[in-house]
Amino acid sequence: MDIDPSKILVRYNVQKEKAQSPDQMAAEMFPKAEPARTIAKAIYDGEEDEVIEGLEKAIGKGADAIKLIDDVLMPGMKIVTDLYDQGVIFLPNVMMAADAMLEGIEYCKESSGSAPKPKGVVVCHVAEGDVHDIGKTIVAALLRADGYKVVDLGRDVPVDEVIAAVKKESPMMLTGTALMTTTMYAFKEINDRLLESGIHIPFQCGGGAVNQDFVASYQLGIYGEEAADAPKMANAILAGKGLAQLKDMFHKH
């Protein structure tokens, strides 16, 4: 027994695939000038050694290491995240590109002896009692790739520790992920403790069993359906959006 599957199912991913390959699209987006072009390509390819090699040459020729971060590394990474947002490339490409770009930033920091100013600080954590942290790892990587400083508290983080970190770091946003319904209740407690302390930062929550209805039930909660929402939300905060506007933007259901 066999079937003609074309009447049973549709592989929309095949149907919707772009005519151009990701490599072709990326090549059109790389800057024309050197060393930016070579370094952007190395970031896209996730080749750490080639990124460092490109930076080394540029610094050798007198380029300012910190300026290279803003003018070359960050724009190079933006090509990768833009392609990801457009659905052209996949997450592992972004992760490998981010690894390469972050190595590059470290190299520039060491070369110059100073550090660049991040776009903002975000504290990330996985709820107390929950050890499932791959979602948080992705969120942190995407935020770093977009120029944010991430204070990663790890997984199974007690509420007290989250509150202490927020007080210490004064972040623009807090993120919390959880896989299990039984652990996500910690988010509500964090919300209450932040409010008690007079802290009103957006608290982006998402992951496994977390749903919009639950997150919308506490004042600071903004539901993040996908990891890629994290940098979008941080950028919206930088653009001046408040809690109510963020809920409008990200509460889709």
Binding site: K16, I89, F90, I134, I138
Partner: peptide
């Protein structure tokens, strides 16, 4: 789950 549905772009 990371792979997700047909249109997700997180893992082949």
């Amino acid at each position: 789950f990371v792979g997700g549905g047909l249109l997700d772009k997180n893992l082949a």
